[in-house]
Design a protein around this nucleic acid. Structure first.
Lengths: 350, 350
DNA sequence: CTGTTAGCGCGTTCAT
DNA sequence: ATGAACGCGCTAACAG
């Protein structure tokens, strides 16, 4: 697909003039000793070590990662596979991962695998092969066929965010999160509750029922309420689509008095439609989201908060522990919590 | 399912366990030929090449990047230095960069340099040294001292987003963007216009006057309007802080009839305060932002749009051109445009 | 077109 | 404590 462009690129080698050999010569020691000094190995006289380090410092010397890794066999890098980079949640998880990983001295390679083409390409070519010690799938549903390909990389795989059950990882309980949202609406007295449900068209694993969907059904059933299919609209993951979905709900003979949205972004889309219809939130209609996106605070949106950055941080810890051969929990489930703002209220008296 | 097929092969089926030597032996050719075949070099008989590739495929062979790069002298990697990963604009730029760079066969290393500590550490240790062919600073103001450190890496540096003037790069004209915003408010008839101005406390280069600030002064001056310092509030880059700033503006003896915010996020903060005060947007007060954040569309916010992802894409192109030794423009300035929605209107008749 | 032979820069046994 | 030498896996001359 890009072979032509790629083949013609010639990278100019540069940087780091000096090599370990230079350092060794200048320090008057052998290459072996210089190497040991640089890597803090045992068996080097403090004095010699100091001398070597000083020379290296002066020469602005840096060990060649390629050579070092070639000789050593390890790589010291981990790949992050992400379906989105421009959505808050993903960015936050990536941020958490990056912080911990780079703190541990690992380099972070970023692989953005967005649409179906990207996916096919990524799992077919496995561009990260031989380049990393581990890969983290960020809120990414790995299909069975893809999983098989991933195996061939022969490296540790960890999941951060998302609902993956196969790889060790960190996540929230989507069912619990959704339940908190719907239960809150029920508690406020709503009996006719709509749901705007989102699926990612590029995530092939849509088969498995989504926890946030189940929560809706669970909550209504437990409240002894009937499920009205009209009240559920399933769309792709986009605020604009949610705005349209809300319009559909408002076109019902008997519209809902409250709407549960799978995410804050969707909730904002829904609110736009409600306002354009001349109705007020929450007086005329309540809306609740999930995520606690930073802008939810600014838009006074009631939501169920999930720790985003923290999922990345914890996933990194889990990854590091396993890389070191230490034991670590298979799955870490982080808590969610209801954040009440001003987009929800009891239903209007009829 | 294709690995162990050839009975005569005794190598383990584990990915990446075989070397070029194995391939060469099995294909009955020399190492050199195998290498040429793998790298698509000229001078290999189609038949031999095919044979080599088939064997490689069967063995699930992947060239060792370390060895290859060590021998070749280049690295095929570029570092992205970013101050934020969880803000839309940065994510979008990163997305654009990643797409083009990985298409060109380059790996992308991510370095999140957030607060002052991160910066000091990054520029002191230069963890990307010898690991990359180039570094991209994403909307990042590089201080002079830092610039000097960066030089020592001896690699190409490119800027994406931000207002860097030193490195070749891609950006928008902040002054123009701001001008569009303020001019629009003036055109609507506003004469008392406030500004919520943001600075990043972790960006040490706050000294240089910000283009979005200048635009405000330029526009008012050109309109023959006086500058009232009371109407300008400078805060850190946060929606919550903007909400407070808006409160300050509303506490004035003579509040503005319209507010120009340096970003959409700030605008949303301002709007929250306005609404909480029982006032309506835009009937009582107009608000305009800059960016065209995806949520601006959902919140019906009038704003000046800037191409985010595209700045990344173009910066990548510029980078690739230079890596190839081709000429390329020093600075690319992308256009901005006013997007009128429902947060601005003519001032109320007094 | 293909094979031989040097390195690339460093880690790591072995000796000493 | 230190040094010599080999090997990591591959690419790039240079022959043939």
């Amino acid at each position: 697909m890009d072979t032509v462009g790629t083949a013609s690129i010639h990278f100019s080698a540069v940087a780091g003039r000096s090599s370990l050999a230079d350092i060794a010569r200048l320090a008057g020691v052998s290459l072996a000793t210089a190497s040991r000094a640089m890597s803090n190995s045992y068996g080097v006289a403090p004095a010699t070590r100091a001398r070597v380090l000083r020379i290296a410092e002066e020469l602005d010397y840096v060990v060649s990662p390629e050579a070092s890794r070639l000789a050593r066999g390890a790589v010291g890098r981990v790949a992050l596979v992400v379906p989105h980079v421009d959505r808050w949640f993903f960015g936050a998880v990536i941020g958490g991962l990056e912080a911990e990983l780079s703190d541990a001295g690992l380099d972070v390679l970023l692989y953005h695998v967005g649409d179906a083409d990207d996916r096919r390409d990524f799992f077919h070519r496995l561009p990260a092969r031989r380049k990393v010690d581990a890969v983290v799938v960020v809120a990414f549903e790995v299909a069975d066929a893809e999983r098989e390909r991933l195996e061939r990389m022969g490296v540790l795989v960890v999941a951060a965010g998302g609902q993956d059950e196969v790889y060790p990882g960190v996540r929230i309980d989507d069912r619990e999160a959704g339940r908190r949202a719907v239960d809150h609406l029920l508690f406020l007295g709503h009996r006719r509750i709509g749901m705007i449900s989102a699926v990612d068209p590029d995530q092939p694993v849509a088969a498995r029922p989504h926890g946030r969907d189940q929560a809706y059904h669970d909550a209504l059933r437990d409240a002894g309420l009937p499920i009205d299919d009209e009240l559920v609209v399933t769309i792709e993951w986009s605020g604009v689509a949610a705005a349209d979905a809300m319009a559909a709900l408002l076109s019902l003979r008997s519209p809902p008095t409250a709407v549960y949205c799978h995410s804050d972004e969707l909730a904002l889309g829904a609110i736009r439609t409600i306002r354009r219809a001349g109705l007020r939130v929450p007086e005329d209609l309540s809306v609740i989201g999930v995520d606690d996106h930073p802008l939810a605070e600014l838009t006074d949106l009631t939501t169920v908060a999930q720790p985003a950055r923290d999922q990345g941080v914890r996933a990194a810890h889990l990854l590091l522990a396993r890389l070191r051969g230490q034991g670590s929990p298979q799955h870490v489930v982080l808590p969610t919590r209801l954040v009440i703002r001003r987009s929800t209220a009891p239903p209007r008296e009829v």
